[in-house]
Design a binder for these strands. Structure first.
Lengths: 209, 209
DNA sequence: TTTCGATGTGAACGCCGTCCACAATGCCAC
DNA sequence: GTGGCATTGTGGACGGCGTTCACATCGAAA
């Protein structure tokens, strides 16, 4: 889709094409690989054309980041759907919180480039609840986490006075571990070892929230 | 120290000068601001001269990162020295673990640029125990954390079977929170609010380790 | 004193993000 | 229809970057 010149002068949906190209670049290479000129090249368009749809490279990267966060949300929703449904509401809610963390960390392992693009872009977490970051189900990763914490309170598994700010505790733990797996001492470990670390970390959150 | 030409053809200690310039760049601007050409400019030297001392920009950045981690270590040691010494060994050890986390997060707030350069450089965490990352006291941030966890076990405040991998749990939590404070929803909050989140997070680690 | 490795210089290459002026296009009012 | 106009794409240029190659300069060892 890049070699032959377009039939029409107009492209059709250049914004979407640039975003798709940006996603491809991010997939193998992370945020630094999202290069404006290369994205236009892949879309079969001159470099400047990008500026009709994105203010600058940072804007394109932000769009890529938002889209990638949507994929993370999907991965989390998948894990939620697959989670078993124990009868007791409390253990069910706690199980669902684990599923959310598992989905987040699973995505980090399976799609390191996109994960980096999603969460290692300075400032792009500031409006974590923006609908631009939502997945198919319409919820952003933060919203999913937030909702599961509400379930925890509703099920009586988390004291209401501990609820406020719970997102920050849970997210901190899980995101920190993702960093260790991607760039730190846990890099390159076998899936089993990483799964072990994950379970221990989720235990910590479960116990300490 | 940049304008007037050098008296001698040789620079003296160009490596150190480039590293110092790199640290200055990182201090305000983070890792992306560590630009090879600018560092040589500040050292009063042609761009290529840098290649006699660093293989490429990544090598310079890695040196900056290591040095910055040494500063983080210093900040942690300071907090450790300032920590009160309760009589009970167990509560003392737990107090010291808190101090380590407090120092880490304090540095992140006080020196965001250097903190980013220290910990937001892909791959530079892989050998976390390298002496290049040590502070004045000769310990890297990871070593400090590791030692405090050992103290916890020695004091009987942590079951020995929970000890292995404890670094990953504690570090994950604290580093994740630092990310939220620097780039996420907690950015720009008052110091009191951030301190509140910090204490809650350290509670979680304390309880859940 | 000569030689030689280590260190710094100059010029160049290709890549990047971005800006400006201009061309092609689709659409809407008349 | 047709003329005008906002939208979208092009071409060319600028400065900055990392990096390489050939060359100059120096200090120290032979």
């Amino acid at each position: 889709m890049s070699a032959e010149p377009r039939a029409t002068y107009r492209h059709g949906d250049l914004r979407a094409a640039l975003l798709a190209a940006g996603m491809d670049l991010a997939r193998d290479g992370g945020p630094d690989a999202v290069v404006l000129r290369e994205a236009t090249r892949r879309a079969g368009v001159s470099p400047n054309a990008a500026y009709r749809h994105f203010a600058d490279r940072a804007a394109l990267l932000a769009a890529v980041s938002d889209t990638a966060q949507g994929l993370v949300a999907d991965r989390m929703e998948d894990e939620l759907s697959a989670a078993p449904d124990p009868p007791d509401a409390g253990t069910r809610a706690r199980r669902r919180l684990r599923a959310v963390g598992t989905g987040y960390l699973g995505f980090a392992q399976e799609q390191p480039g996109l994960f980096r693009a999603a969460f290692f872009v300075p400032g792009d977490l500031s409006q974590a609840f923006s609908p631009a970051k939502a997945g198919r189900a319409g919820r952003s990763p933060y919203q999913i986490l937030s909702d599961v914490l509400d379930e925890l309170v509703a099920a009586g598994a988390l004291a209401p006075e501990r609820r406020p700010g719970g997102e920050f505790l849970a997210w901190s733990a899980v995101h920190g571990l993702a960093t260790l797996v991607l760039d730190g001492p846990l890099r390159g470990l076998t899936d089993e070892l990483i799964a072990g670390a994950r379970e221990r970390l989720l235990d910590m959150v479960d116990r300490g929230l």
